[in-house]
Amino acid sequence: MTTEACTLALKSTLEEIKSVCPEVSNTFIFKPDQTIIAQDATTEETTLAQDAVKAFAALNGKAKSAAGGLDSATFLGVNSQVRLVRANSMFFAIVAKRSADEKILTVISRVLAPALLKTLQALQPELAESETESNQAEGQEIRISGEPRTSKYSSNKAESAANKTPQVAQVDNEPVLPDAPVTQFMVETLHTNRLMGAADYVRIDSQTIETWKDMFGNKKIDEVQVEDTRTGKQQRFKFKPLKDEKLEGKGVIQIPEKAQESLRTKKGALVKVKPIIE
Protein backbone atom coordinates (compact mmCIF):
# COMPACT_ATOMS: atom_id res chain seq x y z
CA MET A 1 0.00 0.00 0.00
CA THR A 2 1.43 3.37 -0.95
CA THR A 3 1.86 6.16 1.55
CA GLU A 4 -0.89 8.19 -0.10
CA ALA A 5 -3.33 5.29 -0.10
CA CYS A 6 -2.52 4.58 3.50
CA THR A 7 -3.08 8.18 4.53
CA LEU A 8 -6.29 8.23 2.55
CA ALA A 9 -7.51 5.12 4.33
CA LEU A 10 -6.59 6.66 7.66
CA LYS A 11 -8.56 9.78 6.91
CA SER A 12 -11.54 7.69 5.95
CA THR A 13 -11.25 5.77 9.21
CA LEU A 14 -11.17 9.02 11.17
CA GLU A 15 -14.38 10.08 9.44
CA GLU A 16 -15.95 6.74 10.35
CA ILE A 17 -15.11 7.36 13.99
CA LYS A 18 -17.17 10.53 13.84
CA SER A 19 -20.06 8.51 12.44
CA VAL A 20 -19.82 6.05 15.31
CA CYS A 21 -19.82 8.81 17.89
CA PRO A 22 -21.45 12.02 16.61
CA GLU A 23 -20.20 13.92 19.65
CA VAL A 24 -16.69 13.59 18.25
CA SER A 25 -15.73 16.82 16.52
CA ASN A 26 -12.08 16.38 15.59
CA THR A 27 -9.65 13.50 15.18
CA PHE A 28 -6.07 13.51 14.02
CA ILE A 29 -2.94 11.40 14.07
CA PHE A 30 0.54 12.82 14.36
CA LYS A 31 4.12 11.91 15.13
CA PRO A 32 6.19 13.21 18.04
CA ASP A 33 8.07 15.47 15.62
CA GLN A 34 4.74 17.27 15.06
CA THR A 35 4.12 15.87 11.58
CA ILE A 36 0.40 15.36 11.13
CA ILE A 37 -0.15 12.04 9.39
CA ALA A 38 -3.90 12.25 8.98
CA GLN A 39 -6.83 14.34 10.16
CA ASP A 40 -10.54 14.35 9.57
CA ALA A 41 -12.06 16.81 7.11
CA THR A 42 -13.33 19.23 9.76
CA THR A 43 -9.93 19.51 11.36
CA GLU A 44 -8.20 19.83 8.01
CA GLU A 45 -10.12 23.01 7.25
CA THR A 46 -8.57 24.75 10.23
CA THR A 47 -5.22 25.12 11.91
CA LEU A 48 -6.55 23.75 15.19
CA ALA A 49 -4.60 20.52 14.90
CA GLN A 50 -1.30 22.33 14.47
CA ASP A 51 -1.84 24.31 17.66
CA ALA A 52 -2.83 21.20 19.57
CA VAL A 53 0.05 19.16 18.18
CA LYS A 54 2.55 21.80 19.31
CA ALA A 55 1.07 21.71 22.79
CA PHE A 56 1.14 17.90 22.86
CA ALA A 57 4.74 17.80 21.64
CA ALA A 58 5.82 20.19 24.37
CA LEU A 59 3.98 18.13 26.95
CA ASN A 60 5.59 14.95 25.64
CA GLY A 61 9.03 16.53 26.00
CA LYS A 62 8.42 17.45 29.61
CA ALA A 63 6.89 14.04 30.34
CA LYS A 64 10.08 12.43 29.04
CA SER A 65 12.20 14.33 31.53
CA ALA A 66 9.87 13.75 34.45
CA ALA A 67 8.44 10.28 34.02
CA GLY A 68 9.82 8.52 30.95
CA GLY A 69 7.52 9.93 28.29
CA LEU A 70 3.87 10.38 27.54
CA ASP A 71 1.54 7.41 27.17
CA SER A 72 -1.77 9.20 27.13
CA ALA A 73 -3.50 12.34 28.29
CA THR A 74 -7.13 13.22 28.93
CA PHE A 75 -8.13 16.86 29.14
CA LEU A 76 -11.62 17.21 30.59
CA GLY A 77 -13.35 20.55 30.34
CA VAL A 78 -16.92 21.36 31.27
CA ASN A 79 -17.87 21.70 27.58
CA SER A 80 -15.55 19.36 25.70
CA GLN A 81 -12.74 16.91 26.17
CA VAL A 82 -9.55 15.95 24.37
CA ARG A 83 -8.04 12.50 24.58
CA LEU A 84 -4.57 11.70 23.40
CA VAL A 85 -3.14 8.20 23.11
CA ARG A 86 0.31 7.09 22.08
CA ALA A 87 0.90 3.91 20.11
CA ASN A 88 3.76 2.89 17.88
CA SER A 89 5.61 6.18 18.08
CA MET A 90 2.50 8.03 16.99
CA PHE A 91 -0.24 9.92 18.73
CA PHE A 92 -3.95 9.70 18.16
CA ALA A 93 -6.01 12.66 19.33
CA ILE A 94 -9.77 12.86 19.60
CA VAL A 95 -11.90 15.85 20.56
CA ALA A 96 -15.46 15.28 21.72
CA LYS A 97 -18.22 16.95 23.64
CA ARG A 98 -18.09 16.41 27.36
CA SER A 99 -21.42 14.59 27.14
CA ALA A 100 -20.04 11.93 24.76
CA ASP A 101 -20.38 8.33 25.89
CA GLU A 102 -17.23 7.63 27.88
CA LYS A 103 -17.28 3.93 27.06
CA ILE A 104 -17.36 4.58 23.33
CA LEU A 105 -14.57 7.12 23.61
CA THR A 106 -12.54 4.68 25.67
CA VAL A 107 -13.02 1.93 23.10
CA ILE A 108 -12.04 4.30 20.31
CA SER A 109 -8.99 5.73 22.05
CA ARG A 110 -7.77 2.61 23.89
CA VAL A 111 -8.67 -0.17 21.48
CA LEU A 112 -9.41 1.07 18.00
CA ALA A 113 -6.76 3.77 17.77
CA PRO A 114 -3.83 1.62 18.95
CA ALA A 115 -4.93 -1.16 16.59
CA LEU A 116 -5.18 1.36 13.78
CA LEU A 117 -1.73 2.77 14.45
CA LYS A 118 -0.15 -0.66 14.79
CA THR A 119 -1.64 -1.70 11.49
CA LEU A 120 -0.41 1.50 9.95
CA GLN A 121 3.10 0.73 11.07
CA ALA A 122 2.85 -2.79 9.70
CA LEU A 123 1.62 -1.56 6.34
CA GLN A 124 3.66 1.57 6.04
CA PRO A 125 6.64 1.63 8.41
CA GLU A 126 8.20 4.67 6.77
CA LEU A 127 5.05 6.69 7.43
CA ALA A 128 5.25 5.82 11.09
CA GLU A 129 9.00 6.07 11.46
CA SER A 130 10.34 7.43 14.70
CA GLU A 131 10.95 11.11 15.39
CA THR A 132 14.69 10.63 15.32
CA GLU A 133 14.53 9.54 11.72
CA SER A 134 12.26 12.32 10.60
CA ASN A 135 13.03 15.24 12.85
CA GLN A 136 13.45 17.53 9.89
CA ALA A 137 9.78 17.25 9.10
CA GLU A 138 8.52 19.80 11.58
CA GLY A 139 5.38 21.42 10.29
CA GLN A 140 5.17 19.09 7.33
CA GLU A 141 1.69 17.91 6.62
CA ILE A 142 0.54 15.16 4.32
CA ARG A 143 -2.54 16.37 2.56
CA ILE A 144 -4.75 14.10 0.59
CA SER A 145 -7.87 14.11 -1.51
CA GLY A 146 -10.56 11.56 -2.35
CA GLU A 147 -12.29 9.19 0.00
CA PRO A 148 -11.56 5.50 -0.34
CA ARG A 149 -13.60 2.86 1.44
CA THR A 150 -12.48 2.09 4.94
CA SER A 151 -12.40 -1.62 4.21
CA LYS A 152 -9.47 -1.00 1.91
CA TYR A 153 -7.40 -0.36 4.97
CA SER A 154 -7.56 -3.91 6.24
CA SER A 155 -6.48 -5.41 2.94
CA ASN A 156 -3.62 -7.83 2.98
CA LYS A 157 -1.21 -5.80 0.89
CA ALA A 158 1.59 -5.63 3.34
CA GLU A 159 4.37 -6.23 0.86
CA SER A 160 5.76 -2.76 1.26
CA ALA A 161 6.39 -3.50 4.89
CA ALA A 162 7.84 -6.92 4.23
CA ASN A 163 11.40 -5.98 5.16
CA LYS A 164 10.54 -5.04 8.70
CA THR A 165 7.27 -6.85 9.37
CA PRO A 166 6.78 -9.89 7.21
CA GLN A 167 3.39 -10.87 8.62
CA VAL A 168 0.18 -9.55 7.16
CA ALA A 169 -1.60 -7.15 9.45
CA GLN A 170 -5.17 -8.08 10.37
CA VAL A 171 -7.02 -5.86 12.77
CA ASP A 172 -9.68 -8.36 13.76
CA ASN A 173 -7.47 -11.34 14.52
CA GLU A 174 -4.86 -11.97 17.17
CA PRO A 175 -2.12 -9.39 16.83
CA VAL A 176 0.67 -10.67 14.63
CA LEU A 177 4.17 -10.33 15.99
CA PRO A 178 6.85 -9.09 13.64
CA ASP A 179 10.40 -10.38 13.77
CA ALA A 180 12.51 -8.77 16.43
CA PRO A 181 14.00 -5.69 14.76
CA VAL A 182 17.74 -5.15 14.78
CA THR A 183 18.86 -1.60 15.50
CA GLN A 184 22.38 -0.27 15.18
CA PHE A 185 23.78 1.97 17.89
CA MET A 186 27.07 3.66 18.71
CA VAL A 187 28.64 2.68 22.01
CA GLU A 188 28.95 5.23 24.80
CA THR A 189 30.33 4.39 28.22
CA LEU A 190 27.80 4.04 31.01
CA HIS A 191 29.34 5.63 34.09
CA THR A 192 27.84 4.33 37.27
CA ASN A 193 27.95 5.36 40.87
CA ARG A 194 31.02 3.75 42.44
CA LEU A 195 29.17 3.09 45.65
CA MET A 196 26.56 1.13 43.76
CA GLY A 197 29.12 -0.99 41.89
CA ALA A 198 29.20 -1.71 38.18
CA ALA A 199 25.89 -1.71 36.36
CA ASP A 200 24.72 -5.00 34.87
CA TYR A 201 22.55 -3.37 32.27
CA VAL A 202 22.78 -1.15 29.23
CA ARG A 203 20.84 2.03 28.51
CA ILE A 204 18.95 2.43 25.26
CA ASP A 205 16.97 5.17 23.53
CA SER A 206 13.51 5.18 25.13
CA GLN A 207 11.95 5.68 21.70
CA THR A 208 13.40 2.35 20.59
CA ILE A 209 12.12 0.64 23.73
CA GLU A 210 8.71 2.15 23.15
CA THR A 211 8.68 0.88 19.57
CA TRP A 212 9.48 -2.63 20.79
CA LYS A 213 6.70 -2.47 23.37
CA ASP A 214 4.25 -1.33 20.76
CA MET A 215 5.37 -3.98 18.31
CA PHE A 216 5.20 -6.88 20.71
CA GLY A 217 2.30 -5.88 22.94
CA ASN A 218 2.21 -7.88 26.14
CA LYS A 219 5.27 -9.98 25.33
CA LYS A 220 7.96 -9.64 27.92
CA ILE A 221 11.16 -7.93 26.82
CA ASP A 222 13.64 -7.97 29.68
CA GLU A 223 16.88 -8.35 27.78
CA VAL A 224 18.56 -7.31 24.58
CA GLN A 225 21.19 -9.08 22.54
CA VAL A 226 24.08 -6.81 21.73
CA GLU A 227 26.48 -7.73 18.96
CA ASP A 228 29.67 -5.89 18.13
CA THR A 229 29.58 -5.33 14.37
CA ARG A 230 33.36 -5.68 14.01
CA THR A 231 34.07 -8.80 16.05
CA GLY A 232 30.65 -10.43 15.88
CA LYS A 233 30.81 -11.11 19.62
CA GLN A 234 27.32 -11.27 21.13
CA GLN A 235 26.06 -10.92 24.67
CA ARG A 236 22.75 -10.49 26.42
CA PHE A 237 22.05 -7.62 28.79
CA LYS A 238 19.19 -6.28 30.79
CA PHE A 239 18.33 -2.77 29.69
CA LYS A 240 16.93 0.54 30.86
CA PRO A 241 16.03 3.75 29.04
CA LEU A 242 18.66 6.44 28.64
CA LYS A 243 18.77 8.81 31.57
CA ASP A 244 20.46 11.65 29.77
CA GLU A 245 17.85 13.37 27.62
CA LYS A 246 20.56 14.86 25.43
CA LEU A 247 21.46 11.37 24.21
CA GLU A 248 17.89 10.58 23.18
CA GLY A 249 17.55 10.18 19.44
CA LYS A 250 21.30 10.22 18.88
CA GLY A 251 21.52 6.49 18.10
CA VAL A 252 23.56 5.80 21.19
CA ILE A 253 23.69 2.83 23.55
CA GLN A 254 25.35 3.21 26.95
CA ILE A 255 27.33 0.16 28.03
CA PRO A 256 29.35 -0.17 31.28
CA GLU A 257 33.11 -0.49 30.84
CA LYS A 258 33.22 -4.05 32.13
CA ALA A 259 30.53 -5.12 29.72
CA GLN A 260 32.40 -3.40 26.90
CA GLU A 261 35.42 -5.53 27.73
CA SER A 262 33.47 -8.76 27.75
CA LEU A 263 31.76 -7.80 24.51
CA ARG A 264 35.11 -6.81 23.02
CA THR A 265 33.80 -3.45 22.02
CA LYS A 266 34.64 0.11 22.99
CA LYS A 267 33.33 3.63 22.99
CA GLY A 268 32.53 4.81 19.46
CA ALA A 269 32.14 1.27 18.08
CA LEU A 270 28.95 0.18 16.37
CA VAL A 271 26.79 -2.56 17.82
CA LYS A 272 23.62 -4.25 16.69
CA VAL A 273 20.87 -4.49 19.28
CA LYS A 274 17.98 -6.89 19.16
CA PRO A 275 15.25 -7.33 21.79
CA ILE A 276 14.87 -10.79 23.29
CA ILE A 277 11.19 -11.65 23.07
CA GLU A 278 9.94 -14.09 25.69
Binding site: A52, A73, G77, V82
Partner: peptide, 27 residues
Amino acid sequence: ETFDAYATLTAAFELGAMENTLVECKE
Protein backbone atom coordinates in the same frame (compact mmCIF):
# COMPACT_ATOMS: atom_id res chain seq x y z
CA GLU B 1 3.24 22.41 30.82
CA THR B 2 0.01 20.49 31.32
CA PHE B 3 -1.83 23.63 32.36
CA ASP B 4 -0.29 25.46 29.39
CA ALA B 5 -1.41 22.64 27.08
CA TYR B 6 -4.91 22.85 28.50
CA ALA B 7 -4.98 26.59 27.82
CA THR B 8 -3.93 25.99 24.21
CA LEU B 9 -6.49 23.22 23.75
CA THR B 10 -9.32 25.18 25.28
CA ALA B 11 -8.54 28.07 22.96
CA ALA B 12 -8.61 25.71 19.99
CA PHE B 13 -11.49 23.41 20.89
CA GLU B 14 -13.47 25.40 23.45
CA LEU B 15 -13.12 22.90 26.25
CA GLY B 16 -14.40 25.34 28.85
CA ALA B 17 -13.19 25.48 32.43
CA MET B 18 -10.97 22.59 33.44
CA GLU B 19 -12.56 19.70 35.29
CA ASN B 20 -9.34 17.79 35.40
CA THR B 21 -6.51 16.55 33.23
CA LEU B 22 -4.92 13.14 33.54
CA VAL B 23 -1.44 12.68 32.09
CA GLU B 24 -0.26 9.08 32.00
CA CYS B 25 3.47 8.68 31.56
CA LYS B 26 5.61 5.57 31.30
CA GLU B 27 6.55 5.58 34.97
